[in-house]
Write a protein that binds this DNA or RNA. Structure first.
Length: 494
RNA sequence: GUUCCCAUCGUCUAGCCUGGCCUAGGACACCAGGUUUUCAUCCUGGAGACACGGGUUCAAAUCCCGUUGGGAAUACCA
C-alpha cells in the first residue's frame, strides 16, 4: 500500500539562516511523518536566483541536523533550480489549455471563475470567493517558476501527501488548489499552523538584531567613540540613522558593547548554549500541546503524539524567559558530570577561553558550582568569567554592604582570615570548607561575614557559587593574590 | 481598500467540537514567606483571564450574529 504512506516535506529557501519559525515547521513535519511511519523529505527552494546561496543551504541543513531532524532523501535533496524541465512541461499544458497566458514576458495563471475551497486540518474549511484572487505569475521572465507554481508541481512530483506550513500561507492555499485542479494533480492534506511573533507582537526577523543593537548604541557613547574596526565606521552613521540594518554592524556593536542580541535563528540558540532538545520541546509547545497539562517532552514523544486536532489557531509570542527556564530545568535534570561534559563540549566551539583553561576534571568542579544556577551555557560562562580572567572592578554596593559597613567589619574579618587561608594545606574545597567553619566557630564571626568579603575579594561581586568551591577552582595563588589586592585597595577605608 | 484567519491570566495554554463537573486548571514571569554563607536551586502561599454587545437555552468560556482588536495575503520573494 505505498499510496497510503504519509509523506511530508520541509522546503526552505536558502536565502538566510533557519529561524525558529522555520525550525518549528520542519520539526512538526518531521514529527508527523515519523509518528505515522511516513517519509519526511527536504527540498531546496532556490528559485530566487539573486538571493540563494550555497552557504545558506549548508547552514540550514546543519541547523536541522543539530535539532535532531533527519530526512529520507538526504542523499539527493531536490533543488528547484535543477528541475526547470519539469516545470516547463506542466507550464506547457497550462498554456495549451489556455489556463495560463503570457504577460510581459512572464506567464500568468488564469484563476478559475468559481469559488475555491481549501480544507485545512486546523482551521477547517476556508472558502475564497471567485474573482477574489488575481491571476498570478507562475513563470518569471528569467524562466524560473515562482514559488506558487513550483511548490505545487514539486509536492505532487515528490508524492507529498501532507503539507504542514505557517499560517501566512493560508491565503496562498487557494492559488495552490486552483493550480492543482488545473493541472489535474492531487491536493495534499493541508495544515496551517499559527505563526510565531516577538513578545511585542511584531514579526520575528533578523531586523530585531539591528533594532536591539541600534537602541543600545544610541544609549551609549558609541557614536562619539566609534567602532574598533574603522572600516565599519562609515556605515555606522547610516546604521544609527536607520538607513541600513546591516547585520555586520549590529554584530560589531554587540561585541563592542558586550551586548546580547536577541536570538532569532536556530544557530543563535546554539551559540547561546541551549539544548536542541529543549528548543524543539519549546517550539512544539508554541501552538500545540499534548493535553493533560504535559509540557515537558522529547521528540520521540512528539512524534508519537503530534496530531492536527491539538494544534492551536492563534499566533503565539516567543517567550525567551520560558525557554530559558526549560533549558535550566533540563540542566538540573542532568547529572553534574553529564552537565560538565555537555558544557565543556559547547565551550570547545564557543568559549575557547574556558575550554583551554579547564581540563575535564576541572570542568566537573565548575559544573558542580554552576549546576543549580545555569539556564544556558553562555550565561554560565558569563557568571564564571572571573575564574578565567581577572575581573574589572568591585561592585560598589556590595563593597559598602559587606566590606565597609560597621567600621569595616567585613574587611577586618577578611584580614584576620587571610593568613589562615595562606597556611591552608592542601588548598582545596574540602579544606577550605573546614577552615571557614572552624574560623567562624573560634572567632564567633558568622559564616556570611567571612564568605561575603571573600566573594568580593576574589570575584568583585557578592555573588558566586559556594565559597569553598569557588576558592578551590581559583587555587591558592589567585585567591591569595586577589585577597591581598582587595585588602590593599580598601586599606584606607578600614 | 479587498479577501481570509484569529480572540481564555502579562506570556504559552487546558477547557470549547460533544453547553451544566469552571467559584476557569497548568506552565513561564511576577509578588510574599521558608530553606540557604551570597546568588541560585528547592518548598509553601498569593495576585492574575473567558475582548465587548446582542441572541439561543432552564443553563454559555463553550452554540449563533454583530462590534472591536490582532494577524495574513493581495510581489516576475518564498
Amino acid at each position: 500500500m505505498s499510496e497510503s504512506i504519509i509523506v511530508t516535506r520541509f522546503a526552505p529557501s536558502p536565502t538566510g539562516h533557519l529561524h525558529v519559525g522555520g525550525a518549528r515547521t520542519a520539526l512538526l513535519n518531521w514529527a508527523y511523518a515519523r509518528g505515522h511511519g511516513g517519509k519526511f523529505l527536504l527540498r531546496i527552494e532556490d528559485t530566487d536566483q539573486t538571493r540563494s546561496t550555497a552557504a545558506a543551504e549548508r547552514a540550514i541543513l546543519d541547523d536541522l541536523k543539530w535539532l535532531g531532524l533527519d530526512w529520507d532523501n538526504a542523499d539527493d535533496e531536490p533543488r528547484q533550480s535543477q528541475r526547470l524541465d519539469l516545470y516547463n512541461d506542466h507550464m506547457r499544458r497550462l498554456l495549451e489549455a489556455d489556463r495560463a497566458y503570457e504577460d510581459d514576458g512572464a506567464v500568468r495563471f488564469r484563476m478559475p471563475d468559481h469559488d475555491v475551497v481549501v480544507v485545512d486540518q486546523v482551521l477547517g474549511e476556508v472558502r475564497v470567493p471567485a474573482g477574489q484572487t488575481e491571476d498570478f505569475v507562475i513563470r518569471k521572465r528569467d524562466g524560473f517558476p515562482t514559488y506558487h507554481f513550483a511548490v505545487v508541481v514539486d509536492d505532487a512530483d515528490m508524492g507529498v501527501t501532507h503539507v504542514i506550513r505557517g499560517q501566512e500561507h493560508l491565503s496562498n492555499a487557494p492559488k495552490h488548489v486552483a493550480l492543482q485542479q488545473a493541472l489535474g494533480l492531487p491536493t495534499p492534506v493541508y495544515a496551517h499552523i499559527p505563526l510565531i511573533f516577538n513578545p511585542d507582537g511584531s514579526k520575528m526577523s533578523k531586523r530585531d538584531k539591528a533594532k536591539t543593537a541600534r537602541a543600545a548604541a544610541l544609549q551609549s557613547d558609541l557614536k562619539a567613540r566609534g567602532l574598533p574596526s574603522p572600516g565599519l565606521n562609515d556605515a555606522l552613521g547610516d546604521f544609527l540613522d536607520k538607513k541600513t540594518d546591516d547585520l555586520d554592524i549590529a554584530l560589531a556593536i554587540a561585541a563592542e558593547l558586550n551586548l546580547q542580541l536577541p536570538e532569532i535563528d536556530v544557530s543563535d540558540f546554539q551559540k547561546s548554549g541551549y539544548f536542541p532538545a529543549v528548543l524543539c520541546n519549546y517550539l512544539a509547545l508554541l501552538g500545540w500541546n499534548p493535553g493533560g497539562d504535559v509540557e515537558k517532552f522529547d521528540n520521540a514523544f512528539l512524534c508519537e503524539r503530534f496530531d492536527f486536532n491539538r494544534v492551536g489557531k492563534k499566533n503565539a509570542k516567543f517567550d525567551r524567559e520560558k525557554l530559558l527556564a526549560f533549558n535550566g530545568d533540563a540542566i538540573r535534570e542532568m547529572s553534574v558530570s553529564d552537565f560538565a561534559t555537555a558544557w565543556r563540549n559547547w565551550c570547545a566551539d564557543y568559549r575557547r577561553d574556558f575550554y583551554d583553561q579547564f581540563d575535564e576534571a576541572a570542568f566537573v568542579k565548575l559544573a558542580e558550582a554552576y549546576h543549580q544556577r545555569t539556564r544556558v551555557f553562555s550565561e554560565a560562562c558569563d557568571m564564571a568569567k572571573f575564574f578565567v580572567e581577572d575581573f574589572d572592578g568591585y561592585d560598589d554596593k556590595a563593597v559598602k554592604k559587606n566590606l565597609l559597613k560597621n567600621d569595616g567589619e567585613g574587611l577586618n574579618a577578611l584580614r584576620q582570615f587571610r593568613d589562615e587561608l595562606a597556611a591552608l594545606d592542601p588548598f582545596d574545597g574540602a579544606a577550605a570548607h573546614e577552615l571557614i567553619k572552624s574560623f567562624c566557630e573560634r572567632t564567633g564571626i558568622g559564616m556570611g561575614k567571612v564568605a561575603q568579603p571573600l566573594r568580593i575579594a576574589v570575584s568583585g561581586s557578592a555573588v558566586t557559587p559556594p565559597i569553598d568551591l569557588t576558592l578551590d577552582l581559583l587555587g591558592r595563588d589567585t585567591t591569595l593574590g586577589r585577597v591581598d589586592r582587595c585588602l590593599e585597595v580598601y586599606a584606607a577605608d578600614a
